[in-house]
């Protein structure tokens, strides 16, 4: 147990350091790109004077490192600051709070769709290795991995909204407004995100199952006369799930990236679209806050994945 706690402590410490290093990297990269929040706010009517006044008001005329320090001060004070250009004057934590439920809902929705379908497909493919079902799952996986998610998004709209008329082509009801509405309006975007994930997951599970099935301990278990279902669940599946869970955890990054594109196609008011809008508006603090949020999510998920793996295989805490 002590060992486990020490392991946990190391991981959390490393994660916090990574979050800050990541946020600073994002800040410096943003600053290196041309652009100015004043241009977003002042638009077609910007003049040299109004640009200069805007820059002075928001400390944008200070050296980059000073600006970085100002931002770090704000964050260390437990605050995410205020939007400068995109939603000028609004509290960033509040902006993220408003957007979080939609992104989280869509991400979890897509992940569940991907997990359920890949567990089914991966198991079927492994059990039917070399037969038609296996070939069909492989075909699905190749197609799924090859299709860009935005393209798939439009194909789904063509099929389910324009041709069949079952689902809306655009618009998303946030889960806070109506859960049923979110489930229905979120189905197409969730499917577009889930399909490539399901393709990867089912391949990994198939391979992992096939490898595990040939392990000595499975043969040993079988020699002890356990029935096949018991062996499959307790010996094969449990061990095969370790690489599967690891891959699922790693794909959360893809999930967040995919959400950004899909959110824009379907008009989902989530963190992904907030971050893209903020980047175009050069609203540095908002981009930073979104990046922090993403980093925290990815690292938390990775931590959970590692802990789940430890639970599945206690030897891993060493």
């Amino acid at each position: 147990m002590l060992q486990f706690l020490r392991y946990l402590g190391q991981r959390v410490g490393g994660a916090i350091a990574t979050v800050f290093a990541g946020a600073i990297a994002v800040f410096l990269i943003m600053k290196a790109a041309p652009g100015d929040p004043a241009m977003f706010v002042l638009g077609d009517f910007a003049t040299q004077q109004s640009i200069a006044a805007f820059r002075a008001r928001h400390s944008l005329d200070q050296p980059v490192l000073t600006q970085l320090w100002l931002w770090l001060e704000t964050v260390l004070a437990g605050n995410l600051g205020e939007s400068v250009s995109l939603y000028a004057g609004r509290d960033i934590a509040q902006l993220i709070g408003q957007r979080m439920p939609s992104t989280a809902f869509l991400g979890i929705y897509a992940l569940l769709l991907a997990l359920v379908s890949s567990l089914v497909l991966g198991t079927v493919a492994a059990l039917q290795r070399g037969r038609t079902a296996d070939a069909a799952v492989t075909l699905f996986a190749v197609v799924g991995i090859s299709m860009p998610d935005f393209w798939l998004g439009y194909v789904l709209v063509l099929a389910f909204a324009l041709t069949l008329g079952w689902l809306p082509a655009y618009g998303f009801t946030p889960p806070g407004e109506s859960l049923t509405g979110a489930l229905v309006t979120g189905l197409l975007p969730a499917l577009a995100i889930a399909a490539p994930l399901a393709a990867v997951f089912s391949r990994i599970l198939r391979v992992s199952l096939l490898e595990t099935v040939e392990r000595d301990y499975v043969t040993a278990a079988r020699s002890m006369g356990y029935n096949e279902a018991f062996i499959f669940i307790n010996y094969v599946l449990r061990n095969a799930l370790i690489p599967f869970v690891t891959i699922v955890g790693l794909q959360v990054r893809y999930l967040l990236g995919g959400v950004v594109v899909i959110e824009r196609i379907f008009g989902v008011p989530g963190i992904g679209s907030l971050m893209v809008d903020a980047a175009f508006a050069r609203d540095y603090a908002v981009v930073q806050a979104c990046a922090l949020t993403f980093l925290v999510i990815v690292l938390t998920v990775n931590l959970i994945v590692d802990l789940v793996c430890v639970l599945l295989d206690p030897r891993r805490s060493h």
Binding site: Y154, V157, L158, A161, L162, G165, P168, A169, Y170, G171, R264, I265, F266, G267, S273
Partner: peptide, 17 residues
Amino acid sequence: ALVAQETSAVNAILAGN
């Protein structure tokens, strides 16, 4: 609605949304 992609708006009209 503020729609990022023109194509999304076209689809939404065609789908009756």
